[in-house]
Design a binder for these strands. Structure first.
Lengths: 170, 170
DNA sequence: AGTTTATGTCAGCGTTGTTGACATTCCAAG
DNA sequence: CTTGGAATGTCAACAACGCTGACATAAACT
């Protein structure tokens, strides 16, 4: 695609980034990039009979220790039955601790154990390394744009969950 | 996070975008955005007993008509056994046509039928609409940065597959 | 011709999504 | 205080889609 096309006759600014062709490229970029994004943690997880779902649970329990199952459900966007299976194995393996709520005994509050925190660190180190390399290669302005587009791509619910987490110093 | 932090004492330019905190935000943004990215096609697919794997196969057969199973495998990054199941249902349902190769009879060349093309259009219209809205909200410069970071995030193999497709006028 | 390599298919398994049924706990209406 | 409904979480069974292994067929190499 080395041929230079003239700017559209209208729209002044260049709306080239909104052509179907550009959108398709963005879609494919998203697909391939997401594979890279998950590749490193996936390799680690495969060695211990865990999957991506375990990673997600561990990540968000680490981010918000003491969170309830229901809370986690809303963030992960899966059914509680699906999450439950994952949590059960993590608890059995001593990665996660589940404490019955003191004010509301229906609730279970979730915490990472030392072992769980060690795994979390291992996984996120791998993922951050890839991210860091990509950020470094692309530069700060590209990163700002990257974040901006991603936020615009989220559903309203997810954007709320995201900004809420983002603005938590932790 | 409305508190303003001083620039780091070294590194001149601001390497703030490489802090662990920033990287974590990027990771979470990627997670939530990908959900939005797939949400609209997923809704359509769910109504017809198809899943994301069917969408991917349809997308790339449409992009490169006549491609072989092996070729598609390399792009999708799954095993041929996994792809086969999906292709079989698509062929049974009359979405995809599989023609035995003329020069090498081991190969099967894949094409979308009219019905398959109609579904492809429906799915990609939905996905492009979301993408277009996000692009429009973020603006052209953000989009350039978005693409740049995504490309840097891919594995080398995927980047080659991606750029090859990208530079195909189709 | 005979062995090796490439392509694609079939069978079976594991992770992780789904819905349905259920136990426990809380809370509010009577 | 009791009772009925809502909220929270668990258990069971099923579907989509990754995976490995075994295999049939066609091509290629010796």
């Amino acid at each position: 695609m080395s041929d230079i096309r003239p700017a559209p006759a209208f729209g002044g600014e260049s709306l080239l980034f909104l052509t179907d062709e550009q959108l398709r490229q963005g879609i494919e970029a998203m697909f391939f990039a997401y594979r890279g994004f998950t590749a490193d943690p996936d390799r680690i997880l495969a060695q211990m009979a865990y999957g991506r779902a375990h990673h997600r649970a561990i990540h968000f329990i680490n981010r918000a220790p003491g969170t309830t199952v229901n809370n986690l459900l809303a963030i992960l966007g899966v059914t509680k039955q699906s999450l439950n299976r994952v949590l059960r194995t993590l608890i059995e393996d001593g990665m996660v601790e589940s404490r019955v709520g003191t004010v509301d005994k229906r609730e279970r509050h979730l915490f990472l154990t030392d072992k769980g925190r060690a795994l979390e660190a291992k996984l996120s180190d791998a993922q951050r390394a890839r991210m860091r390399a990509a950020y470094k290669e692309a530069g700060p302005e590209a990163v700002a744009g990257f974040r901006k587009v991603l936020e615009a791509m989220m559903d309203a619910d997810m954007r709320r969950a995201y900004t809420k987490l983002r603005d938590t110093t932790s």
